[in-house]
């Protein structure tokens, strides 16, 4: 940066430089605090007593961790079921998406077939349609076939991941043609080529798509909120949102405890895998 070597650096400039660097460092630390502190505040509040949580001036820490808060939240509803619903829905979506999207992406990348462009157009259009536009019709559809009391309305609409198909197609397309010709010369059949050559090459984008989908559906609130009106099919997000509307609504230590249950698993994974997670998001964001 300092390429004006011709000029002599005066002591004043040197002092200013030090001050500038120190300020720069402090600002960066400040930024970290702004983005991490709310999570710490969430965790800290969740372990406080009610008086502690509303005390003035606020204390950063609790006198004694109130694990009972978690027990209370957990027992305020059928949380075991909510958690199970969240896990079932998310994992089923991912399994279904992988089964449906990988073959489709493969076909779009590798074969020229009549109508292929039109069908891919459907994928592109779907990719841009927000769920906020489709929920009414989908809701009515499931109500017509009386499936609103099952988990399917939360799963089936995401059976095909348009964004995932798009991403995977890109990475399948990047596999050099010669590699496939070489495999054909090695007497490999189509299925063999798909599993032994193509899928390993698309691994990183498959991982990115899966992670993307997992985080998205685990965190999703809008869709399950509009699709569920029975307690036993609700996922964690909807249940926790209801804490606010319940009798515990002003008991912030309980509301925060509920959110810790939702957020902590993801945060822990993030602490260990943040490099991979960020690069996955970047990979899919730039493409």
């Amino acid at each position: 940066m300092e390429n004006r070597a011709i000029q002599q650096i005066t002591p004043l400039q040197r002092a200013l430089g030090t001050v500038f660097r120190a300020l720069n460092f402090l600002l960066k630390i400040g930024l970290v605090v702004v983005f991490v502190f709310p999570f710490l505040w969430m965790i800290s509040t969740s372990l406080k007593t009610y008086p502690e949580s509303i005390a003035y001036p606020p204390s950063l820490f609790f006198a004694k961790p109130q694990w009972e808060n978690f027990v209370m939240v957990w027992n305020s509803g059928d949380y075991l079921r909510y958690a199970r619903n969240s896990i079932t829905v998310t994992l089923t979506i991912i399994a279904l998406q992988t089964l449906v999207s990988v073959p489709a992406a493969y076909a779009f990348a590798r074969y020229k077939f009549r109508g292929g462009a039109l069908l891919f157009g459907i994928v592109l259009v779907s990719f841009m349609v927000p769920t906020q536009l489709t929920f009414i019709s989908v809701y009515l559809m499931f109500s017509k076939v009386s499936m609103l009391k099952t988990l399917w309305p939360q799963i089936l609409p995401f059976g095909a991941n348009a964004f995932g198909i798009f991403m995977l197609r890109q990475s399948f397309k990047q596999v050099p043609e010669e590699l496939i010709e070489s495999a054909r010369l090695d007497n490999a059949g189509e299925i063999n080529i798909m599993f032994r050559i193509m899928l390993p090459m698309a691994k990183s984008s498959l991982v990115a798509v899966t992670m993307f989908s997992f985080i998205g559906h685990w965190n999703d609130y809008f869709w399950p909120f509009v699709m569920t009106n029975t307690d036993f099919i609700r996922p964690l997000t909807v249940a926790i949102a209801q804490l606010r509307d319940s009798e515990h609504g002003n008991q912030w230590q309980l509301v925060m405890a509920g959110n810790v249950i939702l957020v902590l698993p993801i945060l822990i994974v993030y602490v260990f895998l943040h490099k991979k997670i960020i690069s996955g998001f970047v990979y899919s964001g730039i493409k």
Binding site: V100, V125, A160
Partner: peptide
């Protein structure tokens, strides 16, 4: 399968 899912749950509702 992918096209069916998209037609039923995205295009048709739209």
């Amino acid at each position: 399968p992918a096209i069916l899912f998209l037609l039923i749950f995205t295009i048709y509702p739209l």
